[in-house]
């Protein structure tokens, strides 16, 4: 495997982790371990940037449980505008921010979300994923993970910044990402090199957040059981408001 390029090796890891019969957390972790084994320098760069973001409290100021989720109006993968308020008229909403179709952790996470979409519906909710990527790449993402849920484009990460979820990619990380073929400028139609922290929110029909997961360590995502628990836990919210 050593004569393969890093991007090819990561592809193989991603496929292996996607095929694992294990909870989301285990699969994400397996991906991180694989990357560390195959590309220790890359993994160290990731450690550094994640620690840096954590040191500076990236994501801390994101909306909290009990806060009103700000309204959004964003295009879905077909170019139709979707607003949070129109979704809330139908049911509670799970909003998951993803970095993009190229990110292996997002792929593993989005695929798991696709698998549990029936459970989300059964629990009286619906799911939308928000990425900073243009329609073409959101469609690619949807096809790759067979997502039965819509993916919305947050162009230039404006909504993410509004939620204090935007992070800027350093030049060090940018060089590595470009080498891996992750030229996000094309994916985002933007040279900003800004990504959202991949957060998850569970929003009740009253617009109030009752589940929240925010971690600048993008290798970690909201556990599925926490997500479903927050969705089902309608009683506690009223007291939180």
């Amino acid at each position: 495997m050593s004569d393969l390029s890093l991007d090819k090796m990561l592809d193989i890891c991603e496929r292996n982790c996607r095929g694992m019969d294990a909870p989301l957390e285990k699969r994400l972790n397996a991906m991180a371990i694989d990357i560390r084994r195959l590309a220790p320098q890359f993994a160290e760069a990731v450690d550094r940037i994640v620690k840096h973001w954590q040191d500076f409290g990236a994501g801390i100021a994101a909306p909290r449980i009990g806060d009103l989720m700000p309204e959004f109006v964003l295009p879905d993968q077909n170019g139709h505008l979707i607003s949070l308020s129109s979704l809330l008229k139908i049911s509670d909403v799970v909003i998951a921010f993803h970095r993009g179709h190229w990110c292996p952790y997002c792929v593993i996470n989005a695929e798991e979300l696709a698998r549990i979409t029936p459970e989300i519906h059964a629990a009286g909710g619906q799911l939308v994923v928000i990425t900073p990527e243009v329609l073409k790449f959101n469609r690619k993402f949807i096809t790759n993970v067979e997502a039965p849920y819509p993916m919305l484009t947050d162009l230039d990460s404006g909504y993410a910044l509004d939620l204090n979820l935007a992070v800027k990619i350093t030049d060090e990380k940018r060089v590595i990402m470009e080498q891996l073929g992750w030229g996000i400028s094309d994916f985002q139609d933007s040279d900003n090199w800004i990504l959202p922290i991949p957060a998850t929110f569970v929003v009740g029909q009253n617009g109030i957040i009752r589940g929240r997961f925010v971690d600048p360590d993008y290798r970690k995502r909201m556990a599925i059981e926490d997500l479903l628990a927050a969705l089902k836990n309608r009683e506690n919210v009223k007291s939180a408001v």
Binding site: P70, E71, F72, V73, S83, D154, L155, D156, S157, G158, Y159, L161, D162, A166, K168, S190, D191, N192, W193, I194
Partner: peptide, 17 residues
């Protein structure tokens, strides 16, 4: 430029909403 673009987009997102 990138911070300005992101900020403008955020203002835009609010005015659209």
């Amino acid at each position: 430029p990138s911070l300005k673009s992101c900020y403008d987009s955020s203002l835009g997102a609010k005015s659209i909403a």
